[in-house]
Amino acid sequence: MKASRSFLKQIQKALAESIDQRTMVHLARELINDYDLHKQKKLPETFAIPRSEAADQIVTDMNRYNLIIPFLNIFFSIQFKGYMGRTYKISGFHEILKSLYDMGFSIDSKNGLVYENPTYRISRNWGVLQEGKDYTFCFMWIDIVKYSLAVKENSKEAIQRFYKDFIKIIRESVEKRNGRIWLVEGDGVLAAFHFLNATQTTVLGSIEILHRFFDYNRFENPLTEPVQIRISINNGKCEYSDNHEDTKKSEAVQHVISYEKKAEPDTIFVSRNVVLSLDEIVANELKPVTTEGIPEFYFYRLSWEER
């Protein structure tokens, strides 16, 4: 994304007014390891560079390398999380935000991360994640129980209709929570969540999927038998890649896929790590898989009073 001159000017001004030159360079080095301001300015190292000029050079360079949004994420983090033990107040923050909204971006109010506004654009990397960088994601894996049997026992038309609905239900439930569908492999679907309260939105998204399939089986299912699904959820670090195969090889993804095998049909299986980061209201909906000792997994199922 190439930004407009006026937007770059806003960032440059905010940088110069909020942090010193040394900190600016440190932030730039988070993205470009060997970033050298003097070299970029073609000046000897002993030469003093005014703060506003330093800010201008850094912003120009970040824009040239298409790193302006990742740089903003790092810049904003000094206000939301702090930097080297100190928190900063960014001058002109709201003006920058306004420009970002106009450009089709939103900001995660919890940690200050900028991402594309799903109303305008839905891209695999939320418009901001960089190839090869490590990020923490919450993953959801959805799989249909005995799908191959359903394929054998139903007409091609019925299977096609069902499959379209299956993907639609998942896509709607995931994308309205700013998640992304990363992989569709037969009857298995991998969704990733990164922004906002990622673990919480993943679990709530999975509950919606399970509830919608409950209705789907009763009202719309064109197949001869009700469809059962299994969902597993796990979070972890993963190197972001545009390549599906690389994504699948990552440990966190491998884990979430293997957890699904442990789940009962029509059940959501959630790893303990995820549960620990949930708000109480959502955590209370989950039951431990084992009652002895510390449970490794929790589950959610839509069950009804028996009589």
Binding site: L204, I207, H211, D279, E280, I281
Partner: peptide, 20 residues
């Protein structure tokens, strides 16, 4: 029926309530 069944979704996501 959906109002009661989906109460957790309304409570947590729409109402931002700490309890269902």
């Amino acid at each position: 029926y959906r109002f009661i069944r989906d109460s957790i979704l309304f409570s947590a996501e729409y109402l931002h309530s700490p309890v269902k």
